[in-house]
Write a protein that binds this DNA or RNA. Sequence first.
DNA 1: CCTCTCTGCGTATGGCGTACGCTGTTATGC
DNA 2: GCATAACAGCGTACGCCATACGCAGAGAGG
Lengths: 253, 253
Amino acid sequence: MAAKTDDSGPVLPPAIESAWGLRERPPKGPRPGMSVPGIVDAAVRVADTDGLAAVSMSRVAKELGAATMALYRYVGSKDELLMLMVDAGYGPSPGPHPPGDDWRAGLTRWAWAEHEVLRQRSWLLQVPITGPPITPQQLGWMEDGLRCLDGTALAEGEKMSVLLLVTGYVRNEATLTAQIAEGSRTAGVAPGEMMPAYGRLVARLIDPARFPALHRVLSSGALGQDDDPDDEFTFGLDRILDGVDALIQRRTG
Amino acid sequence: MAAKTDDSGPVLPPAIESAWGLRERPPKGPRPGMSVPGIVDAAVRVADTDGLAAVSMSRVAKELGAATMALYRYVGSKDELLMLMVDAGYGPSPGPHPPGDDWRAGLTRWAWAEHEVLRQRSWLLQVPITGPPITPQQLGWMEDGLRCLDGTALAEGEKMSVLLLVTGYVRNEATLTAQIAEGSRTAGVAPGEMMPAYGRLVARLIDPARFPALHRVLSSGALGQDDDPDDEFTFGLDRILDGVDALIQRRTG
DNA sequence: CCTCTCTGCGTATGGCGTACGCTGTTATGC
DNA sequence: GCATAACAGCGTACGCCATACGCAGAGAGG
């Protein structure tokens, strides 16, 4: 044994291995007419224009002028394709933060970068995540995030937890705004009228005696004004970073 | 007009209206052999035992000894059934917090209650959410959460934002732990060995020169020790509540 | 008793992911 | 130059899904 240095451990799907640049083309057989990146690009294009639901194996194949089953020479399953679509859809990480920035400015920039990606490709949120990230660009994002916390007194595990906290927040916020946008589209309501309409609906349903706190929020008109969604995002992000700040202070002092 | 007091506004699906106790049985025709709550219970039972993927209209019908299409007399679509499943799956809200508790203890209790529900019914996280909550129990949870913040100096809209922040965190954390549990099951790895195996896999993939921060986390063994998942949950929750606390202090002082 | 309305459900349609096996291409070893 | 083995492309088929449609029978009002 041990002719090769890696004892391999968990098995990586072939298409993922090729995303890492491992795996060379076998010497025999006809030349491939397609490529994994080409297939993934086509799938991303479909998702961008017609949504994730439109991404079927046959649709992607049609986009490439190939037959459905031809894709399975390159991709083991649709789930594998989805994983690669997420990797490609996120794109390259935003890059290391400027040396002058402190951790907070860096994480803010990092969070906004993901926010921006998810705003433009909300289908990324609908892809069922099957495990921790193992694709190159995903880990690139993680690396950049970790570097923001480099100078701090946090333990390595804590840095990871903080990142998970921030990215979780960004994804959650993006999910909510994408949902109300989707809802307003299917209901035929103007985007700015969605939350007010929701407020009126709930106000009609609930009994003020049984839901006093909810009733108070509704009468306050807090749902009526359609404030800048970016303000909402900033609000939550600042709360979280305040909490992280408190921890860093404690670890430092 | 205005023979009825409600100008109706957005239309509510019939099955949701019946969940609010509106809507009476029409006087004619044969008596219904099933009921919406019965169907929802059967669907929840299927999801509990065999996962959300096993919930198909035919499977739920089989559970009730009925034909597939019979369900459509009670539920407009599968999406509607899913919405009702979420409402039933969450169950009643945890109830108002004890009067002695401050907002932080209340929200902590509230977050743990949702955490517990999601731990036992992780399929709730896989249901694609189509909009803001409009079912009775969902709004009950919201009411209880809002009441925790009753005595604080926060504006009504801010209370709502804080709730969204907390519930988003709980859902996100539950999603991640459910995913690694799922992954360890499909990969045939012992649950405690999942994260270490993941760490070894990533360590094998990445180049330490290009991913120095990530490499440092991996060598620190932070992923190796399988610490209590509850500790991880508490960590993030405390960070968020610290951030909320900072805001409340500022609004108060 | 007729008629109207509602329930249960059989049938059919159009989609999906993908297992399997055939056909033709290509570089290697003889 | 030729047989051979490995591989690419893909046609067919299977089983599953949600659900549109329409018919048969139940039950109550007139």
